[in-house]
């Protein structure tokens, strides 16, 4: 049984600034990190490996330097790390991306082992669309279980999974047959820290690179050509200037009351 974790290299958004003139992200010199939600997907895959002895593959679509992201995954203990990298994959939106990722998963399924689960972060912190995971599931015909915060039960031989989904104000327990695609939230687990011997081994390991000669996808369905979504503009939204309410030092109680009134008026307090 193989579990596939999809991970993405993203710019460290706390360090990203938007160029006020061109309205584009200033990416120069910004370090890359593994998309935080994806680290939880990867961690869950590794926990299932520890529990069931299944194998774990980490895949990532990105430029050649995204190899660093997959090396981090190797240092954490994945069995295969595959970088999906080709100029023709570039400029992809969520549809084209899910085409490439699902093709890779299909190939893993036939080459390596039977794929039982695909794990993705609920969204990336750069695009924030939360569409790629579900896109993969529908392309592969897998069950999709989004916003998972707990795997309640998993039975590989009976091919059934039951998970808890974290929705607004409630949880939902759902059951689905395998194979399934899960997108996960941070509450699912606490990611592990790489052990030094594993880091050293990962640094020397080579990450397998699959280009389109390997995946053989129709160029009209990948990259910029396969992307119906276009970004026309990126900008920092203007934020209304705030106001200072009363004097919290001189009259804390009165100020608190003023604040509560304001919040009530805007319907921002649950009653």
């Amino acid at each position: 049984m193989l579990i596939v974790a999809c991970i993405k290299q993203v710019p460290d958004t706390t360090q990203v600034q938007i160029d006020p003139v061109t309205n584009t992200l200033i990416r120069d010199g910004i370090p890359f990190i593994v998309n935080p939600y994806d680290t939880h997907a990867l961690e869950e895959a590794l926990r299932l490996k520890d529990r069931f002895g299944c194998r774990v593959a980490a895949i990532s679509m990105g430029p050649p330097n995204a190899e660093a992201t997959l090396k981090k995954a190797l240092a954490l203990g994945v069995d295969h790390a595959i970088l999906l990298s080709d100029r023709v994959f570039g400029g992809a939106d969520t549809l084209a991306t899910s085409n490439v990722l699902s093709a890779a998963i299909r190939k893993l399924h036939s080459d390596v082992d039977e794929v039982g689960l695909v794990l993705c972060g609920k969204q990336t912190i750069d695009g924030d669309t939360a569409q790629v995971g579900p896109g993969i599931a529908s392309r592969l015909g897998y069950q999709q279980l989004t916003l998972v915060d707990r795997i309640v039960d998993l039975n590989f031989s009976g091919k059934i999974i039951r998970v808890s989904r974290k929705l607004e104000g409630r949880h939902e327990i759902v059951e689905a047959p395998l194979p399934a695609m899960l997108t996960v939230v941070r509450e699912l687990n606490r990611p592990r820290y790489p052990k030094v011997p594993m880091r050293l081994a990962a640094a020397k390991a080579t990450v397998e690179v699959w280009n389109n000669q390997v995946l053989k996808l129709d160029e009209q369905k990948i990259g910029l050509k396969g992307s119906p979504t276009w970004v026309s503009k990126i900008f920092s939204p203007d934020r209304a200037v705030g106001e200072i309410l009363g004097d919290g030092f001189a009259d804390p109680e009165g100020t608190a009351e003023m604040l509560i009134e304001k919040l009530l008026a805007k319907d921002m307090l649950p009653i």
Binding site: D12, Q15, P31, I33, R190, P191, R192, Y193, P194, K195, V196, P197
Partner: peptide, 22 residues
């Protein structure tokens, strides 16, 4: 504990990542 077992109090995970990353 840290290097061979990767085992430490959970507060330190953020510290280690912040130190290494930023």
């Amino acid at each position: 504990l840290v290097e061979t077992e990767a085992q430490f109090p959970e507060e330190l995970l953020n510290l280690f990542e912040n130190m290494e990353g930023r």
